[in-house]
């Protein structure tokens, strides 16, 4: 057992955990934040994507003890304190970029990262950047539409 301190969405979570605890289990079961999903559990599907020090990673492929003292952002960080949807969430809602919604939190975190990292991405580039996220309902057209729209909203807001 090891005591870890992990900052999630700006709040510190501390717990005495088994060393083999996966980060995704720490987020869901210890911090009780259930927006991050476990999809394939083999590192392929990206449903468990969170940002670790601002970079997307798959939280089912990391032990919580490995990120002791680090900062994580999960999908719960997107919504404003007033309950307003973020631009990524708005774009996904408007384009109906989800069917069952299981993969959505992973795609939202990728979108959150991509629109800040790159000022512009072509549809082809967006698809390339989203290789690590699967939508088993195969709603990819709408997801690409939503990422492009989110990027536009982000750029408009900045200028």
């Amino acid at each position: 057992m090891t005591v870890v301190n992990i900052k999630i969405n700006g709040k510190k979570y501390s717990d005495d955990i088994e060393d083999r605890t996966l980060l995704v289990h720490f987020i869901r079961d210890h911090a009780r934040l259930r927006g991050t999903h476990i999809g394939c559990d083999t590192g392929h599907c990206g449903a468990c994507t969170v940002l670790l020090n601002d970079r997307p990673v798959k939280s089912c492929q990391i032990l919580a003890v490995q990120v002791d003292g680090e900062s994580i952002e999960t999908v719960e960080s997107l919504e404003g304190s007033d309950g307003k949807l973020s631009i990524e969430q708005e774009a996904f809602r408007e384009h109906f970029a989800m069917q069952c919604g299981y993969c959505t939190s992973g795609f939202l975190m990728m979108t959150h990262h991509l629109i800040r990292e790159y000022p512009e991405l072509s549809r082809e580039e967006i698809r390339e950047k989203l290789h690590g996220n699967y939508c088993m309902c195969t709603g990819y057209q709408q997801i690409v539409d939503a990422v492009q729209d989110a990027q536009k909203r982000h750029n408009d807001k900045k200028s």
């Binding site: 990206g46 970079r55 997307p56 798959k58 492929q61 290789h131 690590g132």
Partner: peptide, 9 residues
């Protein structure tokens, strides 16, 4: 190699 998330780690 793999995807964005894996390349980060």
């Amino acid at each position: 190699i793999a995807d964005v998330q894996i390349r980060n780690r």
